[in-house]
Amino acid sequence: MRQNFRNWPVLLVLFVFSAPLLIMLTFLLVDAFTTKVPGTMVPSGVTLHHFRFLWTDLDNGSWGIWGVTLNTFNFALFTSLAVTAISVTAGYALSRLAFPARGFFLGGLIVLHAFPTVTLIIAIFLILQLLGLYNTLIGVIVVKAALELPFGIWVMKGFYDTVPWEIEMAGVQDGASRFTVWWKLILPQVQPGLMAILIFSFLSGWSEFILPMVLAPGNDAQVLSTYLATMLLDGGTQADFNLFKAVGLFYALPVIIIYLVFQNKLMNIYGGGTKG
């Protein structure tokens, strides 16, 4: 491959703008594993002391890190399963079936997609109270899934739109029911979209902060993002920032791993589906 030297100005600009991020990430990594004399920049020793939250209770009233992690995992997993299951079926209906008020649903989807969801939070809070789901993990899962759906449905519809009609007709002619056609012939072809939605909404659930904080502030439904926040708030000026960084690293690790493993699949959202 021939090196293209024209690239270097672009690379330089990108580097300059991302340098603060890189520096912060480096210090996050370094500080989490080292001790330092206050007021200096250079670490004075290596330690795992900041990761003590993994094997001891921090005595801050929460479940302990593993319970919170399980909560976060459940929250992300069930949100993404719900979003995927509904997007995959609703996207098909919007792409293929002529049902009443289809245009209205399509329009509504775009509006909801662009809607700043934080403005809905008071109404959602009231509804959850009414349903008795306030301060429960299930309640937050339902809300998070509902807010992720417009995006998921829209992306899936885009994927379905690229599957030729004739394949569906051919399946019906071959004697298969509409459901079999969808399950055996159409779904395998939108599988990249399905994977992308699954991973994307898992990551989005994993990093969600506002919804759990407002709708489930109790200890039982605590997730890692709110756990981190309470650490800061409870500690006040005495907060152990190295501990905070270590927990942050622990929290970010799955995201980084998932992203590294699945980055090609995530790119499908922008490549395969939404053309046409």
């Binding site: 030729p164 394949i167 007709m169 051919a170 002619q173 004697g175 298969a176 029911s177 395998p188 072809q189």
Partner: peptide, 19 residues
Amino acid sequence: SSQQRNVGVVFQNYALYPH
């Protein structure tokens, strides 16, 4: 319904199942 007519169809773009 189509399923019960027992008619074979060859479509213009063949409509083979790609997977």
